[in-house]
Amino acid sequence: MRKEIRIAGFGGQGIILAGIVIGRAASVHDNLFAVQTQSYGPEARGGASRTEVVISDSEIDYPKVQLPDIFVAMSHEALITYLDGLKNGGILIVDPDMIKEEEILPFVEKHNINYFKASATKTAVEKIGLGIVANIVMIGAITKATKVISEEAARKAITESVPPGTEAKNIAAFEAGMDLIDGR
């Protein structure tokens, strides 16, 4: 089993942290192997941001994503930039309030994409009252939609990765994210 995940959006959305949490959940708590890499440059807040996580049940040699199984887009720009790279039949999760859906529906149809919408940003603001937890909301959606990490591992990794004192709000954000994906 080798699963390649790409998460992209803009700087300030916590894209990189989302990748770290997923990698940590998989490797430290689910006993799998994971490698997390990121676009690393002088981009400031608002610029493009990307992280990639490879998860496997055996040691990972080549550490980079080649043909993602899962693509999570938190901005329209990121969605358009990387959508082409998604595997046929792959999983796409978008924040619908951040994108123009009509531009991608033909691709989704043509490549038999397993398409999910998770209003992470809106949920973070309206349900948690804290826009900066949108990334954690998205982790909830990713966990539920892809099962690439276990719910328990995700909770532990979030608790370890967020600033002390913010654990409860972040776990609430994670749960709100899980609720965004229906139980299919």
Partner: peptide, 10 residues
Amino acid sequence: DEIIGHMREK
């Protein structure tokens, strides 16, 4: 190198 230095692993 930059890749090994910045990648995260268990």
